[in-house]
Each structure stands twice: as structure tokens, then as C-alpha cells.
């Protein structure tokens, strides 16, 4: 059983309040975080992934009903966000090899190839990421997020820059992630939000 637990989350950014004593609990396989620009969707994902330590309170990812510990996040969580980019001087495949080796996984070649196939990037998988169009770069970033088959997938505006086939591919990934564990999507797209079983709307808060 997977889920999300947020308790008394408070954080400021540049003097502005982002969260003020936010409480939320969810159990399930797919959660959408919605809200207008600047409402804190990306910040919440960063707190969930452990990239950002909040001033007060906590936001935890739950796997088998217990919170994922900071040491476990590396292998249990995958994330794709606009400010998490791949290395432009490496090919998509080399980027994948890097993230897989960094996580200490064996069988790097097979996992990398699988991830590239899942995002339909096979023909351009050995081109420099810097030479790819923004849509293809987005696919490569998704590949890097799913290559190690994480229990939890965090996606921040995943469909930006994707074309029609890309969006279909993305929905396929979201579907299979629901079966594997948990997917949390921060988005403004109502179609994407509808894929989730529950929605946390940050815009509704005062």
C-alpha cells in the first residue's frame, strides 16, 4: 500500500508563504497536485522527494504503510521536473547509465535500453541530449526517472513539450506506475489530473 502523508507543512520562499500548516493524507496509487502557477506544486514535490527540507512539518511518501526513509529515497523514488535536467554533453543512453550506476544497480545496459524503449526514444537514444528538441529531451528525462523501476514516481508538469504520441506514451507510463506503486503528478492539465484517483488542490487554500 502506498500513499502520501503531509503534516503541519510550513515553508516560505523569498519571504512569501508557500505552505502554512498544510495537512493531507492519501492512500492509493495515483495522486494529482493541482493549483495555479506559484501555488507551491513544484515545491511540494521537492519536499516529498527530499530535495528540499521544509521549515516546519513534514511531507512523507508512504510505502507499505510506512514512510520512505531519506536513505531509501534514492532507489525508491524517481522524479522528472523542469528544473531537473540531463547532461547535455552526454547522450540519453549515457545519462541513463550514469543514473543507474549512481544508484548502484547492476545490469545497467538492459535497464537503460528498456527505459529508452518505453519512452520511444530508440532512434535518438545515442544523440547528445543537448542536440535533442525539447520534446525529446522531456522523453529522455522521463526515461531517467523510470529507468530504475522506482516504487514511487514524481512528475512535475510531465506533458509540457510533448507531442500527441508523447502524451500517449506518458499516460502509458502513468498507468503502469499505478500498478507498480505510486505516481504523484503536479499539473495544470485537467486531463492529466483526471488520471489520478485523488486530487490535492493547492489553489483552494487562502
Amino acid at each position: 500500500m502506498t500513499g502520501v502523508r503531509i503534516s503541519n507543512l510550513t515553508h516560505h520562499f523569498d519571504g512569501r508563504v508557500v505552505f502554512r500548516a498544510l495537512d493531507f493524507a492519501y492512500e492509493g496509487a495515483s495522486l494529482a497536485i493541482t493549483g495555479p502557477n506559484g501555488s507551491g506544486k513544484s515545491t511540494l514535490l521537492r519536499v516529498l522527494s527530499g530535495l528540499l527540507t521544509p521549515e516546519q512539518g513534514e511531507a512523507a511518501l508512504l510505502v507499505d504503510a510506512r514512510p520512505v526513509r531519506p536513505e531509501e529515497v534514492r532507489c525508491a523514488v524517481g522524479m522528472a521536473a523542469p528544473d531537473i535536467r540531463l547532461y547535455s554533453d552526454l547522450t540519453a543512453r549515457e545519462n541513463l547509465r550514469f543514473v543507474l550506476r549512481a544508484r548502484g544497480l547492476a545490469d545497467v545496459e538492459r535497464l537503460a535500453t528498456e527505459a529508452i524503449e518505453r519512452v520511444d526514444l530508440t532512434e535518438r537514444g545515442d544523440d547528445m541530449v543537448g542536440e535533442l528538441s525539447s520534446g525529446l529531451r522531456q522523453r529522455a528525462a522521463l526515461a531517467a526517472a523510470i529507468a530504475h523501476n522506482p516504487r514511487i514516481l514524481l512528475l512535475d508538469e510531465p506533458s509540457s513539450n510533448l507531442d500527441e504520441p508523447g502524451i500517449r506514451m506518458l499516460y502509458g507510463i502513468i498507468e503502469s506506475q499505478r500498478e507498480r506503486g505510486l505516481v504523484v503528478i503536479a499539473t495544470n492539465e485537467s486531463k492529466e489530473a483526471a488520471l489520478a484517483s485523488e486530487r490535492l488542490d493547492l489553489g483552494a487554500r487562502p
Binding site: L51, R74, D83, R85, Y87, F98, V99
Partner: peptide, 13 residues
């Protein structure tokens, strides 16, 4: 500057 630090933080201790 190139926003690759986030990838580094997520994957490497």
C-alpha cells in the same frame, strides 16, 4: 546553472 544539480542530488549521496 544547467539545472543538472537536481539530478545529482536525487541519484548520488
Amino acid at each position: 546553472e544547467t539545472y543538472t544539480a537536481g539530478l545529482l542530488r536525487l541519484t548520488v549521496p
